[in-house]
Each structure stands twice: as structure tokens, then as C-alpha cells.
Amino acid sequence: MTPTHKVYIAGPDVFFRNASEVMRTKGEMALEYGFHPSTLAEDGDALGGDTPFAFGLSIGLANEKMMDESDFIIANLTPFRGISADVGTAFEVGYMRAQGKPCFAYSNSARDYYTRLTEDFYAGGPFEADGEVTRAADGLMIENHGMRDNLMLDTAVDQSGGAFVAEDAASDDMPGDLEAFRAVLIRARAFFDAKA
């Protein structure tokens, strides 16, 4: 299929040992659905710097340039190093939403944010009722909006016209399973076909 739109593929996949292979596979899948994929900024020629900080800046700027050149984003918001999405990926969703571009996302965990917060982070309690608010023992509010992740991420996806697919990984590879990614590609293709 001839690509019709450019997709910025975001997620913590860049930290995987096999990052290049994963991104290549995702790129091939994107092409199957008629989307031209972004590539790993870390593989680019425009990177450099005399210090680790300068090198990091060059990666960040390269990513921003790729987002500027893309029509939409598909973000892997599977919980990463904690109960929520990778913070860099969250930034990228916000960056694309601020440009008015469609935001699509997926998670390889069907458990909502509230469940991960109460069961994983707070290990089941204790919790107290404070009026209409539930608080943990540390005094912090426990938000329960029935959302897949932080409400700003769900809002960005929903209000941009995109879709957020959250389903438990079919394989034992929760971070790297690609079935939900494929499901989002299908939703993105339908979104752009409906606008054609």
C-alpha cells in the first residue's frame, strides 16, 4: 500500500536491547497499513555533541524535528519502570497534541491506572475517605477516572480523535508485544480513510 501519512512511532521501545529490530518491525507494520514510519533518532546522522548532555540534546531535537514532520503519533503507553507510561513518550504525546495532530496510543496492560496505583504502587492500602476524595496513607489523593493512564494522556488521545487500545499482551513479552500496536494501526487507517 502506498503510504498516505507519516506516523511518529513513540515509546520506550528505544531502550530495549533489540530496539533497532523492534522499530524496524513496527515500521514494516506501519507500511502495511499505508503509513510512512519515523525512524530511531539514535540512528540518525545529525546527532553529536562533546558531552553526554549535548548528545542527549541532539536526540531530543531530532525527535522534535521528526514529530514536526509527522502527521500523527502512535505511542506505546505500556507502563514502563513503574505504574505509568514512559515520561518521554508522554511528552511526545503532549507535543503532538499541542500541534493539533491525531494521537493514537496503546498499552500492553488492560489494567487501568487506578488499579495499578492502588494495587501496585500503594500495595492495596490503607486508604481513607476524605469527603468525596480517597487518600492514601501518605495523604495524597487517589484519582479514579476510569482511564488507562494519567488523565492528560487519555484526554490528549480522546480529544484529538485518536484511539487508545489497552489489552493484556498475548505473549509473555509484555513490553514488546505488538498485537495492540497492530490494533491501533487498524484504527488509525480507518480514521484517515474516513477523512479521505
Rank of each mutant, 00 (worst) to 15 (best):
D112A: 03
G27R: 10
L40C: 07
T118Y: 07
A190Q: 14
P52Q: 01
G82L: 08
D112C: 11
L61W: 06
G94K: 03
E132P: 07
A10V: 00
A123H: 14
R182V: 15
V22M: 13
L31I: 15
E42V: 08
P3W: 03
T25A: 11
T25L: 09
G11Q: 02
T118G: 08
V133Q: 12
A90Y: 03
C103H: 01
M67K: 05
D173Q: 05
L151W: 13
P12F: 05
R182L: 08
F104W: 02
E64V: 04
D138K: 01
F35W: 10
Y95Q: 13
K65V: 05
A170D: 11
E167T: 03
A75W: 00
F15N: 14
G49I: 03
K6F: 05
A163V: 14
D86M: 03
G161Q: 04
F15P: 13
L77D: 00
K195R: 15
S171N: 10
E69V: 03
E28F: 06
V14S: 04
T4H: 13
G82N: 10
K26T: 01
K6V: 11
S70I: 01
G139E: 07
E92H: 09
A188K: 02
M23Q: 07
A75F: 00
G124C: 08
R116I: 06
G124W: 06
T2R: 13
D173E: 11
E28T: 04
F104L: 05
P79D: 09
A137D: 12
E21F: 03
A170R: 14
V7W: 00
V157M: 07
E32L: 12
M147R: 10
G88R: 07
F164D: 02
D149A: 08
A41I: 06
K101W: 02
D149T: 07
A163G: 02
S70D: 05
G44H: 12
A98G: 11
G82I: 09
I9V: 11
T51S: 15
T4N: 12
S38T: 10
P102V: 00
F55I: 10
S70H: 01
S107G: 09
